[in-house]
Design a protein around this nucleic acid. Structure first.
Lengths: 103, 103
DNA sequence: GAAAGTACTTTCCGCAGTGGAAAGAGTGTT
DNA sequence: AACACTCTTTCCACTGCGGAAAGTACTTTC
C-alpha cells in the first residue's frame, strides 16, 4: 500500500490532479493555479515526464512558444492507484466530506 | 489549500488515519500496522505530540511498560481538514478520497 | 540593431525531512 | 549479574524541495 512518491509531493499531487481533470493544460496556467515558480514547475514537469506520467508538448501560439502538459495513460493509472491507496489508508477513519454544491 | 505537512508525510498519514479509526492504539500495534521501526514510530509519535495532534499515554500491562497513542481533538480536526483539502485537490478529476456525505 | 521581453530550463544553493541502525535508559526477570 | 522488554535518542546518509539567478532561444520594441 505504497503511496507513489512521484505523485505524493504536494506540488506534484496538485499538478497531476489538475491534469487529471483537464485534457491538456498550459504551463502558465498550471504554474499559477498550483502557485509555484517557473523553475519549480519546470522541474516537476520534467520529473513527471521522466516517470512517464505526463507528456510535454511544445508548440507555438502565434510566434510565442508554449508548453502544454497532459497526463499519459500511465500517469492516469498511477494517479488512480494513488487515490485508491489514499482511500484505503483513510477509509477506516469513517470520515466523509460534504460535497461542494456548485449552484 | 495547504496540505498540513505534519500529516502529509506518508508514515504519519498512516499513523493518524489509524488513530482516527481507533480510540487508542498501542505502540507495537501501530508500529506493526504501519510497518516502521521502533525508532521511526517513536520519532513520529513525538512529532505528532509536539504538534498537539496526539496524546501519548504511558502505563503498564502487568509489569511491562506500554505506550498508547490517541488523537487529540485538535489532531482529529487537523486530520479532517487535511482530508477535506485532499478532497478539494483531487475532486476535479472526478475521483474521491472519501465518500460524500449528503446531509 | 541594441535592448528588452517572453517562455521556459538549468544550475546553484541551502535547508529540512526521512528512515534505519545502534546505542541508551528505565524497569523487570532469572 | 546478565539478559530481556519497551521504547527513546543519537548518529548518519540520503533525498527532495523550493527559490534565485543565470542561461537559452526566440520575438518585439524603440
Amino acid at each position: 500500500m505504497e503511496l507513489d512518491p512521484v505523485i505524493h509531493a504536494p506540488a506534484r499531487l496538485q499538478i497531476v490532479s489538475l491534469l487529471a481533470a483537464a485534457e491538456e493544460a498550459e504551463f502558465a496556467f498550471v504554474r499559477d493555479t498550483v502557485g509555484v515558480s517557473d523553475s519549480v514547475l519546470s522541474k516537476h514537469g520534467s520529473a513527471l515526464e521522466a516517470a512517464g506520467y505526463v507528456a510535454v508538448r511544445k508548440g507555438y501560439v502565434g510566434k510565442r512558444p508554449k508548453t502544454w502538459f497532459k497526463l499519459t495513460n500511465e500517469g492516469r493509472a498511477a494517479f488512480t492507484a494513488y487515490v485508491e491507496n489514499l482511500q484505503r489508508i483513510v477509509a477506516p477513519s469513517g470520515l466523509t466530506v460534504v460535497p461542494d454544491r456548485h449552484e
